[in-house]
C-alpha cells in the first residue's frame, strides 16, 4: 500500500537563490539544514506516533509476558514474569480460555468476510448506479453518506433500539405488519444477534466503500465506455471489462482498509450489546476487552492482543504481496 503511492524521489533540484530569498533558511550551514529539513518536518509526526502508538504497543507486548492481575496492577512494573504462560493459555484450544478465543476468532472472521463483502458490493453497486446525470443525484449521494457521517455510537444505539424484541421496528415490521413470523424473534441475544451486528456494521461501512469507489469511477473517461459501446459491449460487459479493472487500484486499498477496520471493530458490539456480548456475536476486540478490563487480567488480555496483531500483520503482508504480484502481472 505504501509503496504504491510513494513516488520516485525527486532529483536534487531547485537550489533557491539565497540572495533573493526573503526567508532564506539555508544561510549559515546550508548543507546541514537541507539534510535535516525532512526530519524536522517529520519530527512532530514521528514523536506523536512514538508517544501514542509505538511505545505503548511495546509496553503492551511487555505486559503480555507478565502475570498482570489485580494483585500486581498497582505496581505493574514489578509484576512477576509469566514467560509464555499467557500465550500458552490463549492458544491452548483444549482449555476453556483458548477454546473461547478460537470461537471468538471464527466469529470475527465470519463477521469480517460478510461485512467487507456486502459493504463492498453495496458500495460498488451504488457507485455504478450513481454514474451519469439524473435528477436528484446530489441529494441521493448526500443521503447515502449520512450513515458514515453519523457518529458511530448514535447510529449503533439506534439500531439497538430498532432490534429490541417488543418495542423495536424490526419485529414490528416482520411480525405485526408483514406477519412473516408468529413468534417475535430475539435480535440482541442468541444466534440472531450475529446478524443484527452484521446489518448494523454494513449499514455504517458501505458508504465509505461507496464514497471511494464513486470517486474512482468518476475518473474513468467517458469515451472509454463509448468506444466499448460502439464495439457492441452491453452494460454487463462494460462493467466487467472497464469499470471493475479500472477501479481495481482503489478496490485493493478499500478492501484492505475495510478489513482492518472491521476486524478491529469494537464500537459496534460494545454499543449494541454492552460489556459482554452474546457468544454468537463475541467479536475478538470485545472478547479481549472483557478478558482484560472486566476481569483485570491484563497479562492474558495483552497476549491475546499481540496474537491478534500478528494475525493482522500476516494477513496484510500476504495481501500486499498478492496485490503487488498481480500489479506486476497486469503491467
Amino acid at each position: 500500500m505504501a509503496s504504491t503511492t510513494i513516488p520516485e524521489a525527486p532529483a536534487e533540484n531547485g537550489t533557491p537563490g539565497p540572495g533573493r530569498a526573503r526567508r532564506a533558511r539555508p544561510r549559515g550551514r546550508p548543507k546541514l539544514s537541507r539534510a535535516a529539513l525532512p526530519y524536522i518536518l517529520l519530527a512532530p509526526a514521528i514523536l506523536l506516533e512514538l508517544l501514542v502508538h509505538i511505545i505503548p504497543m511495546i509496553v503492551g507486548i511487555v505486559m503480555s509476558f507478565l502475570k498482570l492481575t489485580q494483585f500486581h496492577i498497582r505496581h505493574w512494573t514489578s509484576a512477576p514474569g509469566a514467560g509464555f504462560d499467557n500465550y500458552r493459555l490463549a492458544v491452548d484450544f483444549d482449555g476453556p480460555i483458548g477454546r473461547q478465543l478460537l470461537d471468538s476468532f471464527w466469529v470475527t472472521v465470519m463477521f469480517t468476510v460478510l461485512v467487507v463483502g456486502i459493504s463492498w458490493f453495496l458500495g460498488m453497486a451504488g457507485a455504478i448506479l450513481m454514474q451519469g446525470a439524473f435528477r436528484g443525484r446530489g441529494i441521493l449521494r448526500a443521503l447515502f453518506l449520512v450513515p458514515y457521517a453519523l457518529p458511530v455510537y448514535t447510529g449503533v444505539i439506534t439500531f439497538g433500539f430498532m432490534f429490541q424484541r417488543d418495542t423495536g421496528l424490526v419485529n414490528h415490521v416482520l411480525v405485526d405488519q408483514l406477519h412473516l413470523m408468529s413468534d417475535r424473534p430475539f435480535w440482541l441475544i442468541g444466534g440472531n444477534s450475529f446478524w443484527a451486528m452484521v446489518v448494523t456494521a454494513v449499514w455504517r461501512t458501505w458508504p465509505f466503500a461507496f464514497l471511494c469507489l464513486m470517486a474512482a469511477l468518476q475518473n474513468i473517461p467517458r469515451d472509454v465506455y463509448e468506444a466499448a459501446a460502439l464495439d457492441g459491449a452491453g452494460v454487463w460487459q462494460q462493467i466487467r471489462r472497464i469499470t471493475l479493472p479500472m477501479a481495481a487500484p482503489v478496490n485493493r486499498v478499500v478492501v484492505l482498509v475495510l478489513f482492518l477496520w472491521t476486524f478491529n471493530d469494537f464500537n459496534t458490539p460494545y454499543v449494541l450489546f454492552g460489556k459482554s456480548a452474546p457468544e454468537e456475536a463475541d467479536l475478538i476486540s470485545i472478547h479481549i476487552y472483557q478478558n482484560s478490563f472486566v476481569t483485570w487480567n491484563f497479562g492474558t488480555g495483552s497476549a491475546m492482543s499481540v496474537l491478534l496483531l500478528l494475525f493482522l500483520m500476516a494477513v496484510t503482508a500476504v495481501y500486499l504481496a498478492f496485490v503487488r504480484r498481480k500489479e506486476k502481472s497486469d503491467a
Binding site: Q70, F71, F186, I189, G190, G191, S276, P278, E279, Q290, V294, T295, W296, N297
Partner: peptide, 24 residues
C-alpha cells in the same frame, strides 16, 4: 474472594446465556 469480579462476570454471563436459551 479476590477473584470475585471474575466470578461475577463468568457465572453472571453463564446465567445470562441460560436465560437467553430459555427465551428462545
Amino acid at each position: 474472594v479476590a477473584a470475585e469480579s471474575q466470578f461475577e462476570t463468568l457465572v453472571g454471563t453463564a446465567v445470562k446465556d441460560l436465560i437467553a436459551d430459555a427465551a428462545s
